[in-house]
Design a protein around this nucleic acid. Structure first.
Length: 469
RNA sequence: GUCCCCAUCGUCUAGUCGGCCUAGGACACAGCCCUUUCAAGGCUGCGACACGGGUUCGAAUCCCGUUGGGGACGCCA
């Protein structure tokens, strides 16, 4: 039995979007599960639209997601000589021919066919041309079989049949001699000895053409699996207007790669009622044959829920690692002082659905906040709060052990002594320390903030209240 | 328009070869409980087999049609 070889072959004309990420994931999982190889190939034959930045974004996204490849990245732009060779081979064998039709001519043909309510397709008018048209650089067209059918036994679709008469003679080389997509894919998929081509549904119509070219080259096609597309909330193909679609955008918005991957694998696939899959579980349980046939709608709420789940249940050290990165984006370096991010994760994880949220609501541990949240200050930093704050200040100053337990006791005792409900003491203190009415439990907040900053901020709050009119 | 594909709660889905489905789970939503903030957590509720014909003792599960949706029809990939 031959080893499984899969590939992800994006074109570098933009960022890696989540649809592409899912395709990459499925290919990666399939290869990993079968102990095969996963290959990354950059399809940059369109030199107009391909950019270096896009290549970098794709590589960065793959790395962030943890989808490692065994070979590549290969660049199609490095393989032009090989493509030229294959085109010549097809030409020599009479399986391809030169076409001298101008774009205008082809446009007219298309319009005419549309008007006649027919499927627009090239009519093969240059098929038997023997003489070149002077002054015209021709394109090369593949001579598609005129009869018969192409049968695809798709791993997710089942059997799909295309009649050859529905197909036309597609262009495999442009007039400048460069190869086009359908040719390069075929050459590469063959040369790279891929056993399985797992790709988006939108390629299903290309498949019979590619199979025909493969056969013309005397090769056996690999297995195909066309996975359904991801739709936006309005039912149309997911795009920028549906919100964030770039993988790096999700990273920047505070999502964990595990959460995104878990979300993506469950889109169009399920294993009973199981919702949470570690990477190892995915590898063990995922099978391309179990993928649904129907398109699915992207649901940001569920992704957010998964993200929160991972923040709460993943190894806190791992979360802390990601939190450091997000703190860094806020110009905070925990190494320069303040609590260990690990402790911050432990204190904050229940209430933060994203790492960005966690970084933002934890910034006060590391640096002074600019000003109090208006509503929080108005409600809690009132003259009545002066007595408890002053009393707390004295006790915090005197306490020997700066640990949650004794700190907690002080807050409780203060409320008791002053005959106040706990909320009347804890809330003003919380606002004093964090600037807002939301923070981890008060003892934890005190502990993480440290004595020095605690005392400073209580002072600041007292002055704030006394300065009010 | 032509060709290809798809069709279970608002969304993601479970539903082994038709019976155990008065259709299960998750997200979201609503309510209750817990509670020193916000959360987290627990419980309850809301909510679907697109429609019409068949086949069968019996269909969400099989067949046909209708409707609806998506994709492809480039010297883009």
């Amino acid at each position: 039995m031959t080893t499984v070889r899969t590939r992800f072959a994006p074109s570098p004309t933009g960022y890696l979007h989540i649809g592409g990420a899912r395709t990459a994931l499925f290919n990666w999982l399939y290869a990993r599960r079968h102990g095969g190889q996963f290959i990354l190939r950059i399809e940059d034959t369109d030199r107009e639209r391909s950019t270096r930045e896009s290549v970098n974004a794709i590589l960065e996204s793959m790395a962030w997601l943890g989808l490692d490849y065994d070979e590549g990245p290969y660049f199609q732009s490095d393989r032009f000589p090989r493509y030229r060779q294959v085109i010549q081979q097809l030409l020599d064998a009479g399986k391809a021919y030169y076409c001298y039709c101008s774009k205008e001519e082809l446009d007219a043909l298309r319009q005419e066919q549309m008007a006649r309510k027919q499927k627009p397709r090239y009519d093969g008018r240059c098929r038997n041309r023997t003489e070149p048209k002077p002054g015209v650089e021709p394109v090369v067209r593949f001579r598609n079989p005129e009869s018969g059918a192409v049968v695809i036994d798709d791993l997710v679709r089942g059997r799909v049949v295309f009649q050859n008469e529905e197909l036309d003679d597609l262009i495999i080389a442009r007039s400048d001699g460069t190869p086009t997509y359908n040719l390069t894919v075929v050459v590469d998929d063959l040369d790279m000895q891929l056993t399985h081509v797992i790709r988006g549904d939108d390629h299903l119509n290309n498949t019979p053409r590619q199979i025909n070219i493969m056969r013309a080259l005397g090769a056996e096609p690999p297995q195909f699996a066309h996975v359904p597309m991801i739709l936006g909330e309005d039912g149309s193909r997911l795009s920028k207007r549906h919100g964030a679609v770039s993988v790096l955008e999700y990273r920047d918005q505070g999502y964990l790669p595990e959460a995104l991957l878990n979300y993506l694998v469950r889109l169009g696939w399920a294993y009973g009622d199981k919702e949470i899959f570690s990477m190892d579980e995915m590898i063990e349980l995922f099978d391309i044959k179990d993928v649904n046939k129907s398109a699915s709608t992207f649901n940001p709420d569920k992704l957010l829920w998964l993200n929160h789940h991972y923040i709460m249940h993943d190894d806190p050290l791992h979360i802390a690692h990601h939190l450091r990165w997000h703190l860094g984006r806020l110009d905070i370096d925990p190494a320069e002082g303040g609590p260990d991010p690990l402790l911050v994760v432990l204190a904050q994880r229940e209430r933060c659905k994203t790492l960005v949220e966690m970084a933002q609501s934890s910034a006060f541990f590391y640096r002074d906040f600019e000003e109090y949240d208006l509503k929080a200050a108005k409600k809690n930093l009132k003259p009545e709060a002066l007595a408890p704050l002053k009393k707390l200040y004295e006790q915090f100053k005197a306490i020997e052990e700066w640990e949650p337990e004794p700190l907690h006791q002080i807050v409780i005792d203060t409320a008791g002594t002053l005959g106040l409900k706990l909320g009347k003491v804890a809330q003003p203190l919380r606002v004093a320390l964090s600037g807002t009415s939301v923070s981890p439990p008060i003892d934890v907040t005190l502990h993480l903030l440290g004595r020095e900053k605690t005392l400073e901020r209580i002072q600041r709050a007292i002055q704030f209240i006394e300065g009010r009119d």
